[in-house]
Every structure is written in C-alpha cells, then in structure tokens.
Computed example of a mutant assay.
Amino acid sequence: MVASVLASGLVDEMIALTEPFDPLVDLDQARADAALLTIEFAAFGVTVPAATTNNITLMRALMVPIADDALALALDRIWVFTTNVDDVCCHDPAEAEVILRGGMLPGPCASSPNARYIRHMFDEVARFCDPTFLAAFKTFFYNAITGVLMEAEFTPEASDEIDSDFVRVFNGFSQFWFTSLHFAGPCLSAPRNRAFWSAALSSCVAFLNDANDVLSFYKEAVHGEDFLASRIYRRSVSENIPYLAAYRRSLDSGLAAYRRVLDLATDEQRPHLNRYMTAFAYWHFHCRRYRWHDIYPGLTQIDI
C-alpha cells in the first residue's frame, strides 16, 4: 500500500508545494520553551519524550509565530502536552476515561498526573483569552478525548460498522488545533470574528484531518497498529477500493478544504491561515517524527 502511493508521485507533488516555504522562525524562543516545559513536566510527574517536546515547540513556531514570550509558552505547553496525551490515550483507553472524567465531571473524581496537568495548561492560557473562547477551547479538547475512546473500538478488519469519518472529526483534535490561531492576532480573534470561524471551521477541520492522514501514513505503516486504525486504510477496506484511491480522495479533499479556508478569509487573515496550513505540511516532511527522510534523504531535517 505504501509502495503504491510512493509510485504514484502524489507525495512528490506535495513536497514540491512546500518547497517555496521558508519563513522566519524564532528558534531561540522554541528552545527556551522546550527547556522550561521539560522541567515543568518533571515537576508534575508526567512523562513526555524529549523528542515530542522539541518537535512540537518547533511546529508551533513554524505555524503560529507569537511575539509575546509568555503567550508563546502558554501555547507551546498546550501543543506539546496535547500531542503527547493523544499518543498516550490512543494506546491506553483507561487513561482517556480518567482524563475525560477529571475534566468534565464536578467534584472529586479519579485523577492522574496527566489530568492534573491539563487543568494547569488551561489555567495558564486563560490569562490570554476571554472566558467564552476558553470554554469552547476546552470543549474541543474533551470532544477529542471522546473520539479517542471511539477509535479504541475499531477492529483491524474495519468490520465494526463504526463511521471512521465521523470519529475522525472528534479524535483528530482538529477543532482544538486550528482555533489556536485565535491567538495569532486580532484579525483571527474568535469573539471578533465569530462569523468567519463559524463558516470556516468545518473546512479547517477537513484540512487538518485529511492533510495529517496523507502525511502520516508512512510513519503509521512503520508502526503497524496505527496504520490499521487510520481512516484511509479503513476506507479502502470498508469500500473495497485500492488504498491509492482512498489516499487520493483524502489528498483531494484536503486541498479543496485549504482553498475554501483561504476563500473565506479576509486579506488580513489570509497570510496567517496560509502560513498555518503550509507550515503544517512543511513540518511533516522535515520533522524526524514522520520519518520522510527515510524515503527522501534530500529533505533537510529540522530540529531545535
């Protein structure tokens, strides 16, 4: 299945689309935040691999540059920890249940270091947003944890009748990730631009879900188990179509969503949105986490 995609030239076309992307990135800020978060994780008793901390602080710097160092740290804290807790919960549904109860039920309930840290990360970002946005931001996060629990019921044969497209809207954390652009500047502030977000968010979610699926498939194939739970694989099995056809559908859908987001944007919003989405693809190709260098050794690996 991997070979069919690589032979099609689709990956080469995506790499070509990202080649002009060469933004200024505040690597010093990313390094400083990674060092601070490493100390903080240890103090909370949570385990986050150093590679995850380094990769995701770089990702945030590429996609959502923030001049305010305190706000940048608050966002890096959220991006790094959410990436890690997603990985943890995908392989430990019981921890997903603990986190969901800890965040959504009143009064004392079973907790864990991860659940306690999640409260901390939202408390820290609360200083930079109004209560209504914060409530929505938290909702998107816990919706995604619910999606992780649904994904845990997938069978390798895709014979479970679970709608993976529906589950993907939840478990990709995509509403959560994309609305982080609220912090990029007034032109994307959710309270001031609610009509834009209401119109664009479905396409924002489609872009992140589809782009992540097509850019992660090699890493997932190396892992094995993750590949069997992927939407592209499950679609090819459930619809009895070639994997390449399912892959191409996700790619075309992602590119259509990319264009629609930009069409809905104002002239002031468009550069932020274009950078966010282009940097998302660029980071996948150049970050060690996704292993594209295994196949394309000419891709320069980026790191902090």
Rank of each mutant, 00 (worst) to 15 (best):
R248D: 11
L215D: 05
G102C: 08
T278C: 12
H286Y: 13
L36W: 03
M1Y: 14
I162C: 06
R289Q: 12
R270F: 09
L24E: 13
C287L: 13
V2K: 04
N209Y: 01
K219Y: 07
Y142V: 09
H223D: 15
P131S: 06
L105I: 11
E239N: 12
D165F: 03
F217W: 07
F285N: 13
A96W: 00
H120I: 09
L37W: 01
S216E: 07
F122G: 11
S216R: 02
S230E: 04
L149C: 05
E19M: 15
Q29M: 15
L62E: 02
G103T: 11
P106T: 10
R194D: 13
Y296H: 15
L24C: 09
Y218K: 06
T57S: 03
I304M: 03
M1S: 15
I118D: 00
T132N: 08
V148R: 04
E161S: 11
A256I: 09
A206V: 09
A115G: 02
A30V: 12
T278D: 11
A245C: 11
A200F: 03
C109P: 00
G147R: 06
V261Y: 07
A256K: 11
L255W: 07
W292F: 14
N212P: 03
I78C: 01
D26R: 08
R194A: 15
G185E: 12
F207N: 03
S111R: 10
A158I: 07
A35D: 12
A96G: 13
R231K: 07
E151N: 04
R259E: 14
R231Q: 11
S238E: 12
R249M: 14
F154T: 01
F41V: 08
Y218I: 10
R249P: 02
S164Q: 09
A221I: 05
D263H: 08
L71H: 07
Y243S: 02
T18C: 14
H272E: 01
N114F: 00
P23S: 11
H120L: 10
E97Y: 01
D86E: 12
T300R: 15
A7P: 01
R127Y: 11
A35N: 04
S8P: 06
L215M: 11
N114R: 09
F41T: 07
R168I: 06
D226E: 14
R168D: 09
Y142G: 08
N55F: 06
E124H: 12
I232D: 03
A3M: 06
D294L: 12
C287V: 15
M63H: 03
M14W: 00
C109H: 13
K219H: 09
G254E: 08
D33Y: 02
I66P: 00
A72M: 03
F170D: 01
R234W: 05
I39Q: 06
F81V: 14
T52P: 00
V46Y: 00
V148A: 04
V261S: 08
C129D: 05
F41S: 07
L75T: 10
A3P: 00
R270T: 10
Q269R: 10
F137L: 10
D252K: 09
P271N: 13
V48E: 00
R249H: 14
M277L: 14
M59G: 04
P20T: 15
D160H: 05
P23H: 10
W283T: 07
N114L: 06
A200Q: 03
R291G: 05
A211N: 08
Y282M: 06
L24V: 14
V125K: 00
A96N: 03
R127M: 07
C287E: 14
C187H: 09
D22E: 12
W197G: 04
A43K: 05
